[in-house]
Nucleic acid binder design. Sequence first.
DNA 1: TGTACATCAGTGAACGCGCGTTCACTGATGTAC
DNA 2: TGTACATCAGTGAACGCGCGTTCACTGATGTAC
Lengths: 241, 241
Amino acid sequence: MSWRKEQRRAERGYHHGNLKEALLQAALDLIAQKGAAGFTFADAARMAGVSPAAPYRHFRDRDELLSSIAQRGFEQFEARLSAAWDDGRPDTVTAFERVGKAYLAFAREEPAFYSAMFESGVPADSTAGLQAAGERAFGVIRAAAERLAALAPPGVPRPPAMMMALHIWSMAHGIASLFARGDAARRKLPMSPEELLEAEVLIYLRGLGFSTDRQAASKPGGEPPPLPEDEKPAGPWGRPK
Amino acid sequence: MSWRKEQRRAERGYHHGNLKEALLQAALDLIAQKGAAGFTFADAARMAGVSPAAPYRHFRDRDELLSSIAQRGFEQFEARLSAAWDDGRPDTVTAFERVGKAYLAFAREEPAFYSAMFESGVPADSTAGLQAAGERAFGVIRAAAERLAALAPPGVPRPPAMMMALHIWSMAHGIASLFARGDAARRKLPMSPEELLEAEVLIYLRGLGFSTDRQAASKPGGEPPPLPEDEKPAGPWGRPK
DNA sequence: TGTACATCAGTGAACGCGCGTTCACTGATGTAC
DNA sequence: TGTACATCAGTGAACGCGCGTTCACTGATGTAC
């Protein structure tokens, strides 16, 4: 038990070299295993193979470490949402749906980040860096909503992009935290979270008077088709009888 | 410090009389103060004025106590949603919006219950009682969605009520947990959560092809009015330019 | 290029603390007769 | 109505544990000259 630590130090020498990074990674692993509540400063040190006093060289306390993780989470989140958005290619609606899927994928694949970001009790404005990172991530959704709003067909009032962004965010977050989180608190669902979200967003966009037909949506001047009777929410619901 | 405990026992005698209840209440207060993560079994005993061994007469461990709180939370949640729904009076859409407001009000006024129910890591199916209570609460939303779906105007395909219920739930939960929780993790918002949710639900219902005009909605045979150009999401958004 | 020295990063022992849990116990309550 | 006894509900002391935090320390690294 103790020889392992010594062996590890023998390999790496007295100085760790990259302890800050190793602590962040260790904490992330621990959160994934035991939840944001059940990770301790000492645990992270142990997992990094270092004495319990060592982390104090890099983080004031547990909260500062947690907040760093949340910030890093928002940065990765933003990167993934941005990549999915891909500046609206090939057309706005397709890209927008890809953002929704990326949102859920992140919550599922990175439950530790997700819970540090949203459920660990770290206030969103606890640090200037954290707040900025959070706003940049939301900014991707906001920018996408902006582009979507600009597609409002003639005769349809253009909805406020901020409102749209908040609505979409709340849909995605609601589904993610109820159904898509990669941990035990997940609830059962008769279809995939992705399908549920896609249907929800499509219905919402129709409610704003948008065509959800992709070709039309990518041509801003296109005629808004009337809601056809055989159009229905996509997904596993089947055609309503 | 210790005389206080003795005094309290002098008042109440050797037997507490209602310790189980007192422990639930104490835990609830502690969760409200420090979050679901930061409440301990010993703390609850102390707050109830009882020795640290006493709670073991009523709960196997901390998890069982937490799960009891979550269950009680779902029961109260269901009661409030039911009261708000009021069996769809005076008309379905009005009653439905009242349910949404009740959802947010619960999250705001009972953050301790809300976090025990959704964010404490207690699995939704950890107990038969808990699972049943959760399902009954969701059942209110589902029943309301059922009634709403039945109002689909002629020519509009009737949407699956289960899907509608899940969509509405995810909207309400998303807004509640991002913006309406009565604790520090709440994010800032340019309008009230209630307004945000109401607009979201109205847009969604329109997307399903429903009129959101209340009179029409309460007459299932009523003509679905075309989406009028001056109709817009209610709330503080102002008329889009 | 070598050397002295300052600075940095991690050590390990120690501390006080509060937690969860157990135990034999005891005071209070209810019930059979 | 009284009494003996079983059961229940809470006591308080004790335990081992792991945590957060501090401290003087030391090995490694970088830098000025």
